[in-house]
Simulated assay, not measured.
Amino acid sequence: MSTRLSIILVIVCILFGTTIKAQKTKQLGEGDAPAPALLSEITWLEGHWRGEAFGGIAEEIWSPPLGDSMFFSFRLIDDEGVQFYELGHIIQQENSLLLQLKHFSKDLKGWETKDETVDFKLVDKDKNAFYFEGFTIERIDKNHINMYVLIDEGDLREETVFSYKKYRP
């Protein structure tokens, strides 16, 4: 995770108190290979999701798998409008999955450099969750998911949860 994103998430978590103490995220040990998985195993993530986070609305839209990837867009909206965006994908990489994303300010200026992405290797999976390094996607049921993001900055090591419901306009 970029230093800039870590700092912003720490500040937001302190201001809005949306951290949780339960440990739902995992990390690869040094030298451990990513867990084996197929993109077809996470197709339940496809769809339009909305929830509350950081005092506003968090929205994610996930495409169906195509071309060895599932594309997504994210935006956080509060009373002042869009706060930031993310674009990314989960890709099939050899026999595992990799979650990659880039952040953009509300005026679409990138946070990461042109060639930089924030990468999360797959650590583990079970029938209802995919555990990427510091980022867990958990299926509650067909209409609800949780995403847990680990904030690890200095002495602060806490998770933030995004609870989503399938959105049907």
Rank of each mutant, 00 (worst) to 15 (best):
E60H: 06
T117S: 08
W62L: 06
D107C: 03
K125P: 00
K114F: 10
H89G: 06
L97T: 06
N95A: 10
H89M: 09
F72Q: 10
Q100C: 06
D107T: 15
D107W: 15
S73G: 15
G67N: 14
K109E: 09
V82T: 15
V123S: 08
F71T: 15
D126T: 03
P64I: 05
K127C: 04
F104V: 13
K109S: 08
S69W: 00
D126A: 02
S69M: 03
E80N: 13
G81T: 05
E80V: 06
P64W: 07
W111Y: 03
E112Q: 13
D115Q: 10
L101S: 11
Q92A: 11
L122P: 00
Q93S: 11
L66A: 13
K114W: 12
Q93V: 12
E86V: 05
L76V: 10
N128K: 09
V123F: 14
H103S: 15
E94Y: 12
K106V: 05
E86M: 12
K114L: 14
H89Q: 14
G67Q: 12
E112T: 02
Q92S: 11
L99F: 05
D115N: 13
L108Y: 11
Q100I: 10
K121P: 15
G110Y: 04
I61P: 14
K109I: 11
F120V: 03
D124I: 00
F74M: 14
K127G: 02
K102N: 05
D78R: 03
K121R: 13
E112D: 02
V118P: 03
K114Y: 11
Q83H: 09
S96T: 15
G110R: 15
K127A: 05
Q83T: 13
I91K: 01
Y85S: 04
K109L: 09
W111R: 13
Q92L: 10
Y85E: 01
Q93I: 10
L101Y: 03
L101V: 10
D124V: 00
D126I: 00
P64T: 11
T113E: 08
K114C: 04
K106T: 12
V118C: 03
L99M: 09
F84G: 08
F104H: 13
P64N: 09
Q92I: 06
V82N: 12
K102Q: 08
S63Q: 04
E116R: 08
G88M: 08
K109Q: 09
P65C: 01
V123G: 08
D78T: 08
G88Q: 12
F120I: 03
W111S: 01
S105W: 11
D115E: 07
S105R: 10
D119G: 00
F104W: 14
G88P: 01
V123Q: 11
T113Y: 03
D119I: 05
S73P: 02
L76Q: 13
L122Y: 14
D119Y: 01
I61W: 07
W62E: 00
Q83N: 12
K125V: 00
